[in-house]
Write a protein that binds this DNA or RNA. Structure first.
Length: 135
DNA sequence: GCCAACGTTGGC
DNA sequence: GCCAACGTTGGC
């Protein structure tokens, strides 16, 4: 099972919004690299939920509940989306600054490619971040 | 609010 | 197919 991270600006769609809705369509992703990651997602894969701009922290874990299918919000009709559901929040959200200051995470895309909105998370980094967050 | 990094667009 | 101009993301 693969592990991932998605970003969302909480002012647009926050973790609390996802909890309220239970599940949601993860649409609007246009970057080709991020699209490739969406396509590779499988049902049951777990996903860190990161708040960009405000918060700048990983606040919860979501799960892929529908594999990639056409994103009808794309006027060009090229994009895919998946469905995500909320699984559980972090007792202690893990901040970007904590991740950046920890050498174990120096090579993950969150640190090296700050603009990538859907990205894979290596297993070791996943486990370490879960511990930092109290899970 | 600024701006660096990065993608995309479109003229040639 | 190149690349300059432009737009966007997202950390600071």
């Amino acid at each position: 099972m693969a592990r991932w991270l998605v970003k969302s600006e909480p002012a647009k769609y926050s973790w609390d919004d996802l909890v309220r809705d239970g599940r949601t369509e993860w649409d609007g992703v246009r970057n080709p690299m991020a699209q490739g990651h969406l396509k590779a997602m499988r049902n049951g894969d777990l996903v860190f939920y990161y708040h960009s701009n405000e918060g700048k922290d990983i606040v919860g874990i979501a799960e892929v509940v529908k594999e990639s299918y056409p994103d009808d919000t794309d006027p060009k009709g090229r994009s895919l989306m998946v469905d995500l559901k909320a699984v559980k929040p972090f007792p202690t959200p893990v901040t970007l600054s904590a991740i950046k200051s920890d050498g174990r995470f120096a090579t993950i895309p969150l640190v090296t490619n700050s603009r990538l909105s859907v990205q894979p998370v290596p297993d070791e980094a996943w486990d370490a971040i879960c511990k930092l967050g109290g899970l």
